[in-house]
Design a protein around this nucleic acid. Structure first.
Length: 563
RNA sequence: GCGCCCGUAGCUCAGCUGGAUAGAGUACUUGGCUACGAACCAAGGGGUCGGGCGUUCGAAUCGCUCCGGGCGCACCA
């Protein structure tokens, strides 16, 4: 007998068959349609799975829902998985799954190991995920940290859901902000500080600018994976300063990201889009498309043809391009690299670019689908320190850097904090709370479950491989079946997180799983006399540890065996 | 003014492809280590799901509207 673990789809098929018998016109190839929804009830007394089919059909069939439920149950094909079926409430059909069927998950988890939970939604298709993409004009702050945590976790989840994921970082290393950066460093080289009257309004005021200037004057070398830049020390060489400052700050950002456990496959430079001629090419294509026009010495794109509320300038009257032109060129490049799907994770303050970029891509008329690319926008992070909000402004030099957070509250806790909330909700990061109560952080609660299990397994000292074939038929208690069911849910959590682009679901799932384990731990003993019971329980908790570990790795959080 | 997001327990947040008695953490009260890790567990109080109207057998969830908060509305990026 093959082991059924995806009870949801199994039950869905059973109900589809029953439906064909009871109301054929609503079945798959019938004229009317109804969705067969199998959900997990909140209360255990309502069974393991519930189906609301009867209530959906009641009106059309003009029969009481409970009568329809009765008929559906009568028509339900036999299954080894189903222990009991009940009608409840207004007409819910509650299904109880046999404990024996649930027990199969233990072997399933232990054999699949790190692969347990993986699903095939993506079918190996390519998806490009761009995230962080901070301007190389200063250190990464909390907001970037949220982008890094959410984006990286999303990538992990998509990978687990069967997508072929590429992580990409885009550097806006051209344009006006970089000019400001260059000028700020140059002034610092000349000994002018932000407090001096000659300091420009748009200049960057942070202390790190002085560090860059000092390094430049000292003719330091910036070494990183893809770049080696030697400072000339010449205060009058604007190009050399620009080049060095960008390289210096990119290196700092890379180091921060690495310390945060986030790695990218591809780094794209805005400046390269100019030097490679991709910006020019995009402009020519847009002009050829007929969606552009000249007005007031500027070149405009008629983005209103594609749903924008007003047209946008492409080439300014001073001859330079606006930001969104290289952005369109960049996305055209992504499309040509074969990404049928692209997800951009950004702060919600960038949401106005969405319409523009999509409009530009549509104007190109190269076959890019309308809603391409996808966006995940995280809301702003406000930071509390000493009970007061810290205003983040690069220019003012007021900062809470990602590096500070990693140093003060740790990488694991920071990642968990930033990834464990819905991207749509604003986030208050209370630094004092995160620091002072770091032991109450939910991430430790989850890690503790993992460590506890490993302590038990170490105490036992037996061959862990032997647990893969343990007889688990003794696992019948309330605690045990609850844990079995939670582990069965894991693949569906990954599926939902990938579908909804909502990595925080993994964090909440893990908290529930850990809670289930801690309750079990306090209510039971594992190293008991009875060999069969002992091995069954050890197999169960070993499987739980595996799922906890798999989930923590999705979040980019470590799964320590001791803490 | 227009667009996007949010408003759920004192606080921080889940739940939102409509489902049954709205959940967790924290804080507060009480109990549990001479047995595998107490960074844990068990029990208790705490709610007009921002307000109103509507759709529905059924609304925290969908629609409209009002109120409140965040972000964005450049020939900046």
């Amino acid at each position: 007998m093959s082991v059924v673990l995806n009870f949801k789809s199994h039950l869905s098929e059973l109900f589809a068959q029953a439906l064909r018998e009871v109301a054929p016109e609503f079945a798959n190839n019938g004229s009317a349609q109804v969705e067969i929804l199998i959900e997990r009830p909140k209360l255990a007394s309502h069974g393991d799975y519930a189906c609301n089919l009867a209530m959906q059909l009641a009106k059309a069939l003009r029969k009481p829902p409970r009568d329809i439920a009765q008929a559906l149950i009568a028509a339900l094909p036999a299954s080894e998985v189903v222990a009991k079926v009940e009608i409840a409430g207004a007409g819910f059909i509650n299904v109880f799954v046999t404990t024996a069927a649930k027990q199969g998950v233990v072997r399933g988890v232990l054999q699949a190991g790190a692969g347990y939970g993986h699903v095939h939604l993506g079918a190996g298709r390519k998806v490009g995920v761009e995230f962080v993409s901070a301007n190389p004009t200063g250190p990464l702050h909390v907001g970037h940290g949220r982008g890094a945590a959410v984006g990286d976790c999303l990538c992990n989840v998509l990978h687990a859901a069967g997508w072929n994921v590429t992580r990409e970082f885009y550097y806006n290393d051209a344009g006006a902000q970089i000019d400001n950066l260059m000028r700020s460093v140059q002034l610092r080289c000349l000994g002018i500080t932000p407090d001096d009257p000659g300091w420009p309004e748009a200049g960057y005021r942070g202390d790190y600018i002085a560090d860059v200037a000092k390094a430049y004057l000292a003719r330091e070398m910036v070494e990183a994976d893809d770049q080696h830049v030697q400072a000339s020390g010449d205060v009058n060489d604007a190009e050399a300063i620009r080049h060095f400052a960008v390289a210096y700050l990119r290196r700092e950002q890379d180091l921060d990201l690495r310390a945060f456990g986030v790695n990218f496959d591809v780094f794209s430079l805005e400046s390269a889009l100019y030097t490679d001629g991709k910006v020019e090419e995009t402009v020519k294509k847009l002009i050829a498309s007929g969606h552009t026009y000249e007005q007031d010495d500027a070149l405009w794109l008629r983005t209103t043809d594609f749903g924008d509320d007003k047209d946008r300038v492409m080439r300014k009257s001073d001859g330079g391009y606006t930001y969104f032109v290289p952005d369109v060129a960049y996305h055209l490049d992504k499309w040509r690299r074969g990404f049928g799907r692209v997800i951009n994770e950004q702060g919600s303050d960038h949401h106005s670019t969405i319409t523009r970029v999509r409009a530009g891509l549509q104007a190109l008329a190269v076959g890019i689908p309308k809603g391409w690319p996808d966006y995940v926008l995280h809301q702003m992070v406000t930071v509390l320190k000493n009970g007061e909000e810290v205003k983040i402004s690069k220019r003012a030099g007021s900062y809470v850097t990602l590096r500070d957070l990693i140093d003060e509250v740790g990488c694991d806790a920071t990642r968990y904090f930033l990834a464990a909330r819905h991207p749509d909700s604003q986030l208050v990061f209370d630094i004092d709370l995160a620091k002072s109560q770091s032991n109450d952080n939910p991430v430790y609660y989850i890690q503790y479950a993992h460590a506890r299990i490993h302590a038990v397994l170490a105490q036992w000292g037996g061959d862990r491989q032997s647990l893969h074939h343990a007889d688990v038929s003794a696992l019948e208690s309330e605690y045990e079946t609850a844990l079995l069911q939670r582990m069965i849910d894991f693949p569906q959590v990954i599926e939902s997180a990938a579908d909804d682009l909502a990595p925080h679901l993994v964090a909440f799932y893990l908290k529930d799983l850990a809670a289930g384990f801690h309750s079990y731990y306090n209510a039971s003993r594992f190293l008991v006399e009875d060999e069969k019971i002992k091995l069954a329980r050890l197999a169960l908790v070993a499987a739980v540890a595996q799922v906890v570990r798999n989930g923590l790795l999705l979040l980019g959080v470590s799964a320590p065996e001791k803490m």
